[in-house]
Design a protein around this nucleic acid. Sequence first.
DNA 1: GAAATTTGACCTTT
DNA 2: AAAGGTCAAATTTC
Length: 316
Amino acid sequence: MASSGSDVPVAWAAVARNDLIEARDGAARLRNFLPQLDDQRAAWAQLEIDGVLTKLSSAMSALDVGARSDGARSQQSGSSCGNKRKQSSSRSRSQRPSDKKITATLEDGHVWRKYGQKEIQDSPYPRSYYRCTHKSDQGCSAKRQVQRCETDTSKYVVTYYGEHTCRDPSTIPLIDHAAGALAELDHANNLISFGPSSTNNDANAAAAASNGAGASSSQYLQAMGGSAAADQLSTSWCTSDDVFSSSAGSFMQVDELIGAVVGSAGVTSAAPDRGVASGGRGTVSFPPSPNSLGFVVGSLGSIGSGEDDDMFRLDP
DNA sequence: GAAATTTGACCTTT
DNA sequence: AAAGGTCAAATTTC
């Protein structure tokens, strides 16, 4: 298992960074409409836009810091040997999520097994708990929580915990390629600033030119041949409601900001069918089982491509 | 029969 | 004590 941790979370951070940049550009475009407003509204809108830009810049900085110190992730020892309920150390309330995203599809290239569902306070939708299906045979400790997005019910909030230590032969090559290539993209994006007239797409284009891929991260992934992965990533991050700040191990809520600026910009919400759960007692299962939709091979699923537990070390 | 989901109960954390 | 996370028996589907 010991691979040298290919940093998919870092890659996702790069994608998130692109989205932030797009959000910033959107805010800048909105500013052009200010003259069409009366003075009072224009002043208010100006303040709002300035606030949005400030927050986006802050989020961008946090992402940059996090991307450089990607060791600041938490991961409990997690041997878990999973016997009795007495085991307490693996309770995930003390765990830090390794990633979180808003997505229209629950498919992420991994096969998950649902082990629980809970009604959550302050949320109209239950939360479903999944663990990697390879937990039993390979001891994979990856987990995820899925909850329907309150603001956009066609999407899901998926929070990942731990990382995959399982090795699915069909996914490994793509994971490594994607992680490596996106790491380069990440470097390229470090050139981007939040200045008033940046041409971030130029930076992306330059990066893309040197790599022979398109300007956006999703296009980049598609060029790498991972069409499913690209589709998922673009879908997942277009709305970027949350941005992971790895340095603090917490999430920065940007949804109000980006949402206000970008709105529901061009997201294809191919919401999964509320299909009948394949098992159980016929009662309604909130998120349809991803397995019932078929296993997507070769997407970016692995969070950090296995066995690199150091990625999730708790920040002291 | 194997595998997966549902769901109530149990356990830990806050 | 409340809320959240996990377990495991029951149930269903393939």
